[in-house]
Design a protein around this nucleic acid. Structure first.
Length: 449
RNA sequence: CCGCCCUUAGCUCAGACUGGUAGAGCAGUCGACUGUAGAUCGACUUGCCCCCCGUUCAAAUCGGGGAGGGCGGACCA
């Protein structure tokens, strides 16, 4: 499905960025010396300022006066000089002793301000929160290490820009929100170059859809202040990146790269761009200075490739976290994707959403026969319960009156036992999904005016 | 550069030799049955037959040209 075609937004590109920039506007005009060291790895600070966006955190220091951890933002130099990654985001310039001396309740993730609207139960510990609804993690030990000291650690998901978010996007977005709640920094890569390589249109078109996508993510609940949105083109066209890319090309077989390409155009034979694509994904993990790569299970092969190849270039291996792929709504099999089958997206009206949920495959079991899944339960588990404290099933007296659930397990068990009828489950699912979708839907309408 | 194969319904393909303006399976839609969906049963829909030119009363079908896709050869050796 060609989402980018025929959708053109009249706004001059870039205009949005000026709107919400925070205090940088005064500095933005000040001209910096034209010549810069040629060996920069990362996008230069100027670029971030020009776009009114926060630069990556390069260090976190403990500010005694405020009694809090403070993130220093900036742009690291190349990995040979200046900041190296050991000194940047991941590293604790905050000595544990300093934190301890600042007062017992002053936990680092509280003071970072990220955690203000926590949506997870206070009993859940960081590791459990990170692992919630994760299908797989590579490796568990590495993730436990992250969980032990999540503050300032950086996680990302890369999205190929599409005009409309659907539940597949939101699944990983939920995980990002979890990670923010756990105290990590979250980077959303708006992978415009990848989209281009995948034939999604001109850079201009892709840029437009990327902006729409970003707006919808923010509407959905990724806080704009604590989430770093990065366009791939901001750094993926730089010389050093390109040279690293070529080095990867040199050491990766066609076969391997092709198998790592998750976004396959069904049945079509791969273009050269399609094998470059996953290699760039590998490099992104390094160049965005990440500590954790997040993606759907379909990203598994890329992440494994990255783990194998990054050390060859002299970079660290990062852990990966994979969310499940939700089954197709109508059949309960395979995966629900935007290109095939029924998908719920932010484009859906309440009525459309209800109709889709209503026609979903939903046997009164949590474990249907064969390889099938129960997509209705999956949506409750992956989309509803992570974002709502409790779920109320409104039921006529005739069928036993309302039911209230605080956890997915209880709801699934009731469906299994027959206490909860699938039709009632669907009704409430539609209601809650609609609530999740609503802000994004409004944003979309606003954008398209 | 040369050669071979492919292009028909949303998908996978039959039909071409022996011209008479299209078929199957799957998918989809609508009913029936279930307090959901599925399964099952019943009904229904779907087409620039890749494009252009020619032959013919008549072309998806034959001839010529072209486009797109796949594969191989050659060059490198």
């Amino acid at each position: 499905m060609d989402r980018s075609a025929g959708r053109r937004c009249r706004r001059p590109s870039g205009a949005r960025y000026d709107a919400g920039s925070t205090g940088d506007s005064a500095r933005r005009d000040r001209r910096r010396p034209r010549e810069r060291p040629r060996d920069r790895t990362r996008p230069d600070l100027q670029q971030y300022r020009r776009r009114g966006r926060l630069a990556p955190v390069v260090a976190a220091v403990f500010d005694r006066e405020r009694g809090a951890r403070v993130h220093l933002r900036g742009v690291p130099n190349s990995r040979q000089t200046g900041w190296n990654r050991r000194l940047s985001g991941r590293d604790r310039l905050t000595a544990p002793s300093e934190i301890a001396s600042s007062g017992s309740e002053d936990r680092p993730d509280d003071s970072s301000g990220i955690n203000s609207s926590s949506r997870f139960s206070p009993h859940m510990d960081t590791y459990d929160l990170i692992m919630r609804n994760a299908e797989e993690v590579v490796t568990d030990e590495e993730v436990r290490e992250l969980a032990a000291d999540p503050a300032g650690k950086r996680a990302y998901v890369g999205y190929e820009p599409s005009g409309v978010l659907h539940l597949g996007h939101l699944l990983t977005a939920n995980k990002l929100i979890d990670l923010q709640d756990a105290g990590m920094e979250v980077v959303v890569l708006l992978a415009d170059v990848h989209a281009y390589l995948n034939g999604k249109g001109s850079f201009e078109e892709i840029r437009d859809t990327a902006e729409q996508m970003k707006a919808q993510f923010v509407a959905y609940g990724l806080d704009e202040d604590t989430t770093e949105f990065v366009y791939g083109s901001e750094y993926q066209l730089e010389e050093e990146y390109t040279l690293d890319l070529h080095e990867l090309e040199l050491s990766t077989t066609l076969n391997r790269a092709q198998r790592a390409m998750a976004e396959i155009q069904g049945g079509e034979t791969a273009k050269v761009s399609h094998v470059v694509y996953p290699l760039m994904q590998c490099l992104d993990i390094e160049y965005l200075d990440l500590d954790l790569a997040v993606g759907g299970l379909d990203q598994r092969k890329v992440h494994m490739l990255a783990r194998e190849e990054l050390p060859e270039l002299g970079y660290d291996v990062r852990p990966a976290l994979h969310t499940p792929i939700v089954a197709d709504l109508t059949s309960g099999e395979g995966k629900m994707s935007s290109s095939e089958g029924v998908t719920i997206s932010m484009e859906d009206s309440t009525a459309e959403l209800e109709e889709k949920v209503n026609s979903a495959f939903c046997p009164p079991t949590r474990d249907p026969e064969g390889d099938l899944e129960n997509p209705v339960l999956e949506l409750f588990e992956y989309h509803v319960f992570p974002r709502f404290e409790e779920v109320v099933v409104e039921r006529p007296e005739k069928y036993g009156g309302d039911l209230t659930y605080e956890a997915y397990e209880a709801l699934a068990a009731d469906l299994e036992s027959g206490e909860l009828h699938p039709a009632d489950a669907k009704g409430t699912l539609a209601t809650y999904l609609d609530e999740l979708i609503a802000p994004g839907r409004e944003k979309l309408l606003e954008i398209r005016d």
